[in-house]
């Protein structure tokens, strides 16, 4: 672990207590996940719905209290369950922000755009006069491509893409270094998805931002990510360079995710046969023994059912958790 990373997450666990009949059992939404992000880098995080991607993002922003693990941001240990470190988050809220998945429920319907974008400025007292507040809000609206004349409008008057831009402006208001983008485009029309993804890229170039970019769709993630992490049932399956992961997926789960990606041009379609993912993700309450993916894996063996595969380096930082060589 080097200190040149802006974010280091190790052995992060998030168990939710859920009622199962009369007993309360832990739902292991995120179980022992480690990754790191360098300044200015984008780490894509993919996996089917319900794999715990959102939970990872929210837990590392401390919207949920982590069950265990260690979170280091910009050299400061924010949380460490072993050393009993649990820092107050208020000062770090200015440096780490989040863009939410649902552009409809993430904006308060009783607030104007001006107040939504202005709230972080109010909370952290980032202006000295009313005029400065107004100017900052106008500037932010222009940055994300919103018409500043609409500042006094309510969020419900905007389209999905525009609402997501409001959410982005709110995240940018505190001038953060790191943003968790939780499926920021999956609720948008395909044509608007491209615009918003491009805007994320432009903002990254202008402001040197680092992203954790979550998506359930490899197509969106491969476009923006430097590295890609693949998650399944709360566990990390594979992390590699974006190009490396797309060209040479090692984990059977990544391979099946890739063959599920529609290929726009039939001439360049992958020669490899399609691997169809069968069945649904099992409930995290009924976690399979050993490898979590074994119930849907074509290569599953005895060993897979008994032991959890270790997360090992297959060369050049291509990390995989699979027994299959």
């Amino acid at each position: 672990m080097s200190s040149e990373n802006i974010l280091e997450v190790s052995h992060l666990k998030q168990y939710f207590p859920v009622k199962n009949g009369f007993k309360t059992v832990p739902l292991k939404a995120v179980d022992d996940i480690s990754f790191s992000i360098k300044p200015g880098e984008t780490l894509g995080l993919v996996g089917e719905s319900g794999c715990g991607k959102t939970t990872v993002g929210r837990t590392l922003l401390r919207l949920y209290q982590p069950t265990a693990g260690r979170i280091v941001f910009d050299g400061d240990v924010l949380f460490d369950s072993e050393q009993k470190i649990d820092k107050k988050m208020q000062p770090y809220r200015k440096q780490m922000q989040m863009v939410f998945q649902d552009p409809y429920s993430s904006l308060n319907p009783r607030m104007t755009v001006e107040d939504i974008i202005g709230e972080p400025l109010d909370v952290h007292k980032l202006y000295s006069s009313k005029g400065e507040r107004h100017d900052k809000i106008m500037e932010l609206m222009e940055t994300v491509g919103l018409n500043a004349e609409h500042a006094t409008r309510y969020a419900h008057e905007f389209s999905g893409g525009q609402r997501q831009r409001i959410g982005i402006a709110r995240a940018l208001a505190v001038d953060p270094k790191f943003i968790v983008c939780d499926e920021p485009v999956s609720a948008l029309d395909v044509s608007i998805q491209a615009q918003v993804v491009n805007m994320f890229e432009d903002l990254q170039k202008e402001r040197g931002l680092s992203y954790l970019f979550i998506a359930h769709d490899l197509l969106v993630v491969q476009h923006i990510s430097d590295r890609i992490a693949v998650m399944y049932l709360g566990h990390m399956m594979e992390i590699a360079d974006a190009v490396e992961l797309m060209d040479n997926p090692i984990h059977p789960y990544t391979q099946s995710l890739l063959s599920a990606v529609p290929i726009p041009d039939p001439n360049t379609a992958r020669k490899s046969q399609r691997i169809i993912l069968e069945g649904d993700v099992p409930s995290p309450l009924k976690m399979p023994s050993g490898c979590p993916f074994r119930t849907r894996c074509r290569y599953a063996t005895e060993q897979c059912a008994c032991e959890m595969p270790p997360f090992t380096d297959r060369g050049n930082g291509h990390m995989v958790a699979c027994w299959n060589k």
Binding site: L61, R93, M98, S106, L107, V174
Partner: peptide, 9 residues
Amino acid sequence: YVLAAKCIG
């Protein structure tokens, strides 16, 4: 948006 408020601080 309640979560977003928490995220903002």
